[in-house]
């Protein structure tokens, strides 16, 4: 297992407010890692640093050995915490966009997955329910053959059935040596699919463990461990 993502003493501030404070961790390839923490703890900031929406001037992040930039963006597939496309676009437009811009995008695969969920490619994004929109976005993101998938809150505001579907899409489409970094509040619903969990509190990394180890050592679930850390 090689190190896919490395953060070394990563910090970030918005104005005077410290959003990330000296965060260091490593992520191996082939792992699904959960990123947990209350609202405003720095999860989205960390993710934005990794995908390059916030500048990493100190080059504290290395992905596959490279600092964040053109090269890493080509191997990172990112799903923002909100639906990113305006409603006037059809699903086919998004397929065209991904196909043109990403060499590793498998259009046939995406179309199959969409058809499998009964999502019409002629449909406008704006006319979809939130759950369908989220499913579409995850299918697009997971239909790339990337090395690292960064999913920010893929389950926010969708019902339990849709959530289950999204988890299935993730597991089905993830290439074998690829990793997923998953930020979510749904700790109970996702802990079965995780290899590792990272807890962030006030911009600091306070917990980074193998989920199975937590269960083995303390006989407790991850959500119990979470409650203990944040209560």
């Amino acid at each position: 297992m090689s190190v896919l993502l490395e953060c070394k003493n990563l910090s970030h501030r918005y104005g005077k407010k410290v959003a990330l404070d000296d965060v260091s961790f490593q992520m191996e390839s082939g792992k699904i890692v959960g990123l947990f923490g209350p609202n405003g703890s720095g999860k989205t900031t960390l993710i934005k640093k990794i995908v390059g929406l916030l500048q990493d001037e100190e080059q504290a992040i290395k992905i596959d050995g490279d600092p964040v930039g053109e090269k890493t963006k080509a191997i990172v597939s990112y799903s923002p915490d909100r639906l990113a496309f305006d409603g006037e676009r059809k699903v086919t437009d998004l397929l065209d966009f991904y196909e043109l811009m990403y060499d590793d995008f498998d259009r046939g695969h995406a179309e199959e997955a969409l058809a499998g969920l009964g999502i019409d490619t002629g449909e406008y994004i704006g006319k979809m329910s939130k759950g369908t929109g989220e499913k579409t976005q995850i299918i697009l993101v997971m239909s790339r053959n990337a090395k690292l998938y960064v999913l920010d809150e893929p389950f926010s505001g969708i019902d339990p059935v849709a959530r289950e579907t999204v988890i299935k899409i993730m597991l089905q489409n993830m290439p074998e040596d690829a990793s997923i970094l998953l930020s979510t509040h749904h700790i109970q619903e996702t802990e079965q699919i995780l290899d590792e969990a990272i807890f962030i509190k006030d911009g600091k990394l306070v917990f980074h463990k193998s989920v199975e180890k937590v269960r083995e050592e303390s006989g407790r679930s991850l959500s119990e461990a979470y409650m203990e850390v944040f209560r």
């Binding site: 929406l53 053109e70 963006k73 923002p80 990113a84 496309f85 990403y102």
Partner: peptide, 14 residues
């Protein structure tokens, strides 16, 4: 300034 930028700015270009 919009969400769309999050997708466009993570494209593999400078």
């Amino acid at each position: 300034f919009t969400e769309e930028g999050m997708i466009r700015l993570t494209l593999p270009v400078k």
